[in-house]
Amino acid sequence: MANVDLEQRDLQAAATSHRGDRVFNRAITAAAFVSLIVLAGIAIFLGAQAVPVFQQLGFGFVTSTAWDLNSDPISVGIFGMLYGSVLLAIVGLVIAVPASLLLSIFIVFIAPKKLASILTNSVDLMAAIPSVILGLWAFYILNPQAAEWQSLLHDYLGWIPFFQNESGNFLGTPFIAGFILAIMIIPITTSVTREVLGRTPPELINAAESLGCSLWTMLRYVALPYGRGGIVGGIMLGLGRALGETIAVFFVLKLVYDTNWYHVIESGGGSVATLIVSRFGEASGPFEVQLLLAAGFFLFLMTLGVNMLANLIVSRTGRLKK
């Protein structure tokens, strides 16, 4: 048809011609960008601090484990700390994920309404405890208790490599630090998984019931697969919290400049955040501060990497083959 000469009218301009909308749109857009700018700013600042450190120490900074500024040349490496952060987070998740899942399953599918709302509120309240309070509580109350549990673990399950302990000292272990992390992860993960499971469409539950499901098979084949993305997301939020948590871990973990690979009930471990908080106050000079900021940069990178990996896993497993 002869539509060559037709002039298209600008619908985009027309759609945003309402003045209030335009102002509101810009305000929202600006606010959205602020978070991106802050994130980028932090990354650039930390990265800039890391550059001279990397120039001086090379890859040794992330592949070795030491913190000795008096030797010549200085011997500094944060591998044990990076690895330690991950180990603590894993211990935390191993305890927190099953607990959160069971708790949300109970709240959503089993508990009577009143009990469910009491539980929901009290779990949410757990998130309001300041981590310094948790740390103090862990140091004075939980630590001696947990030493007992760990010694039992060692006595009965010591043949499993994870539960070996040669020193006989059960204080300041990755286990206890991971346990405290679990207490901090549980409210976050539970509130997400509870929400996700609660949104399982009733017609799917109906279908499962009409096919003779039990609670377990309904969860396994219907509710959990339906909520998989959200559940993994909740776990990731918990993981982020665990990797970056500082003060509570600082109270209970005995920081050693060595790599504790998997002896979770052996005294001593590493954590980047705890390294920073424990060294920062008594840093010997601007260079040590720079070292700590560089360590922070790698913690930042690692957290980013873990989150991206998790997103990849979610999108991979969530897809049905075509």
Binding site: E203, N206, A208, S210, L211, C213, T217, M218, P225
Partner: peptide
């Protein structure tokens, strides 16, 4: 005594084949 509901409700996380066989899994 099986049931078919008003709104089609196949399990979205399963394949066509998986849906047909889902009753076997759900009921054991």
């Amino acid at each position: 005594i099986g049931m078919v509901f008003q709104k089609p409700n196949p399990f979205p996380s399963m394949t066509i084949r998986g849906n047909v066989l889902s009753g076997l899994k759900l009921s054991g």
